[in-house]
Design a protein around this nucleic acid. Structure first.
Length: 647
RNA sequence: GCCGGCUUAGCUCAGCGGUAGAGCAACCGCCUUGUAAGCGGUAGGUCGUAGGUUCAAUUCCUACAGCCGGCACCA
């Protein structure tokens, strides 16, 4: 007998091996009919599974939130059947559930294209219409391999081989079609419903390894209701509207062109925004005890050989050609660290100089693979807000805590309060003694503990020279972006011959902490554009206010207003064009100018302005100086504001 | 880098084996206008680049480049 506890707390006994379906049917046929799966002690299971031990049981109806992943997983199976029935000979591989949908990877000599979607979707609807039950069988390893081999499903044979000994080899059937699968599934294909859509095709390597064959992946989305599907599609459209590449063009911030793939042409407004970020970083890191430096863009390749970068990253570095008159080869710097080590090394350093904090807004170039390029988010030339801090090893924890607090405080100023920290420890391929790693990892963890900050653990994901923390922020529409990093480097200082004189007079190799705040300024600009959907807070907006005249009678006064605003430190422009005010308001609203200062005869006579804010239809008429004082206050950077308030 | 798709006017896009079209923007004129498009006119493209097929290519084919979506990569 098994004792089952129901959600209402009732506890009943049933014979061993009874199925969830039988229990549901015993309670009421309608319950059995609307139940698509069950949960045993909170874990989803097939409704027809035999129950062999005491558990809490719940019946999962199709509209239960937990049914979503089942719908998606079943949809993946239905799609796989549809594809194989339309193109026999196509091999199936894996088809998991992902956020908002599912995919299935196929192997076929002829790849699929989106033009195939209507046929596949039609076939899927037929399969769903047939409403065939999902049934599970457990096969022996040998049998499974034999059957898949005979079907020519070579990838499945590999998957069977990969299943650990002692684990069941489960086969799910839907009618004639079957697939190796961990499950669980709903009771029948009909439960998938109609709220699904195939989204895109993509190449994907077998088992995620670039050395393996390329499969065709078909992505789909599936929902419980058509409303949910429609809403999801709508969300995608909205996200597209905040795409920084589109807003960058619409707001005249930057552009890219063929001759410089992966490099940004910053326009005046975009560069204003970029400089606002640079200036902010300069203030923050100067306050935190960093000194800004600038190291050469080109350095002899021998330095990069010594640092180890040539060995590991040669293919991703830009190198100069050797010339007849000079046999040297230079490297366009892909990182700032070797340069900073040179600055540390220049002149003897004492333990009294530590921590020695060098920061640089260094422009680095990396030959990123062409397929990786993506607007500002992944470029070949970018500006790192980089710093290297030279310390003794007993200073690691304190310095890391300081960096940690600095990073969080900076993100907060930009409205990012949901920040995750990832801790990565020693990778398999690494250099240095385990004892040193031990110390570095412990120091990082102690810093997080003292700062009382939660973190996730990425085993073996550290850099080859040391463990690291990575800072991941979440934007307005819930996307995660990895930005800042703190790394302990136990390698480069030694390799590049850095040392300081300890109290004992000994030469000691310092520990080097590597730290980035935004990471890449280009990328962070892109994140800000998407986060705000172009509606920047006043202190970031490249153009903060537009002075618009009603008629040419106000032209002279408009110029006065603009001049006065500039004296308040505001970034303003004037629109004297012979256009109706409606036209001007519309145009500047679309350009996402945060503040419109409208002036006509009336305002000119009273030395006032009519203020209209982006996103609002409200108009507020204020005396000019008062209005500018308010705006100037708002346009003050958060850190400057804090300082003023403290003073 | 790999797989697939795309590339036509500044932007968004239509078109097609017989050397191109719309809307918006731009420019010119009229209108002096009160908070999201006033009216009229003009101009604008070697159809991504290079080859090939053809009497004829923007259209079909091939290569290359860039971009887009993934995958892989990301010091």
């Amino acid at each position: 007998m098994v004792a089952l506890t129901f959600p209402d707390g009732a506890r009943r006994e049933y014979p061993d091996n009874i199925t969830g379906f039988e229990i549901a049917k015993g309670i009421s046929p309608s319950l059995a009919k609307r139940t698509v799966a069950m949960a045993l002690d909170g874990t989803l299971a097939d409704l027809h599974d035999k129950i062999t031990k005491d558990a809490k049981i719940e019946f999962i109806p199709r509209d239960d939130p937990r049914a979503m992943e089942l719908i998606r997983h079943d949809a993946a199976h239905v799609m796989a059947e549809a594809v194989q029935s339309l193109w026999p000979g196509t091999q199936v591989t894996i088809g998991p559930v992902i956020e908002n949908g599912f995919y299935y990877d196929f192997f076929r000599n002829e790849p699929f294209t989106p033009e195939d979607f209507p046929a596949i979707e039609k076939k899927m609807r037929e399969i769903i219409q047939r409403d065939q039950p999902f049934t599970k069988e457990v096969w022996s390893r040998e049998e499974a391999k034999r059957v898949f081999r005979e079907k020519g499903e070579n990838f499945k044979v590999e998957l069977v081989d990969a299943i650990p000994a002692g684990e069941e080899i489960k086969i799910y059937k839907q009618g004639e079609w079957f697939d190796l699968c961990r499950g669980p599934h709903m009771t029948s294909t009909g439960k998938v419903g109609g709220a699904f859509k195939l989204m895109k095709v993509a190449g994907a390597y077998w088992r995620g390894d670039a050395r393996n064959p390329m499969l065709t992946r078909i992505y789909g989305t599936a929902w419980q209701t058509q409303e949910q599907l429609d809403q999801y599609i709508h969300q995608l459209e909205e996200a597209e509207k905040r795409d920084h590449r589109r807003l960058g063009r619409e707001m005249d911030l930057f552009h890219f062109q063929e001759e410089a793939p992966g490099s940004v042409f910053w326009h005046p407004k975009g560069w204003t925004l970029f400089q606002t970020l640079e200036n902010y970083i300069r203030r923050r890191q100067s306050d935190a005890g960093y000194q800004e430096v600038n190291a050469p863009q080109l350095m002899d390749s021998s330095l990069w050989v010594t640092s180890g970068h040539m060995a590991k990253y040669r293919e991703m570095m830009f190198l100069t050609e050797k010339r007849e008159e000079e046999e040297r080869q230079y490297v366009i710097k892909p990182m700032n660290c070797p340069g900073h080590v040179q600055i540390f090394k220049n002149g003897l350093k004492s333990y009294r100089d530590l921590p020695y904090r060098l920061a640089e807004l260094g422009k680095v170039h990396r030959f990123e693979p062409s397929g990786a390029l993506h607007g500002l988010m992944r470029v070949r030339a970018f500006t790192q807000d980089d710093a290297h801090v030279f310390i003794s090893d007993d200073q690691i924890t304190d310095e890391v805590i300081a960096m940690h607090r600095l990073i969080l405080s900076i993100y907060k100023d930009f409205g990012f309060e949901d920040v995750q920290v990832k801790f990565s420890d020693r990778p398999e391929q690494r250099i240095g003694e385990d004892a040193v790693w031990e110390k570095a990892e412990a120091a990082l963890l102690r810093a997080l503990e003292i700062a009382e900050y939660p973190y996730t653990y990425n085993k073996g994901e550290g850099a080859f020279y040391g463990p690291k923390l990575e800072y991941v922020l979440r934007d307005a529409i819930g996307r995660d972006w990895q930005c800042g990093t703190v790394q302990v480097d136990l390698n480069l200082p030694g390799r590049l011959g850095a040392f300081y004189i300890a109290p004992s007079g000994e030469k000691i190799v310092p520990v080097m902490l590597h730290r980035a705040l935004f990471g890449s300024l280009e990328r962070f600009t892109g994140i800000l554009i998407e986060h705000h959907a172009g509606h920047f807070p006043l202190w970031l907006a490249p153009l903060q206010a537009m002075v618009c005249t009603i008629t040419s009678d106000a032209d002279a006064y408009a110029a006065d207003v603009a001049a006065a605003a500039k004296k308040f430190g505001l970034r303003v422009d004037v629109d004297l064009r012979n256009e109706k005010i409606n036209y001007k308001v519309r145009e500047h609203s679309l350009a996402k100018v945060p503040v419109l200062l409208v002036v006509g005869k009336k305002e000119a006579a009273e030395r006032a302005v009519s203020i209209r804010r982006l996103g609002s239809e409200k108009q507020t008429v204020m005396p000019l100086d008062a209005a500018l004082a308010v705006l100037a206050g708002e346009a003050t950077a958060p850190d400057v504001k804090r300082e003023r308030e403290a003073a």
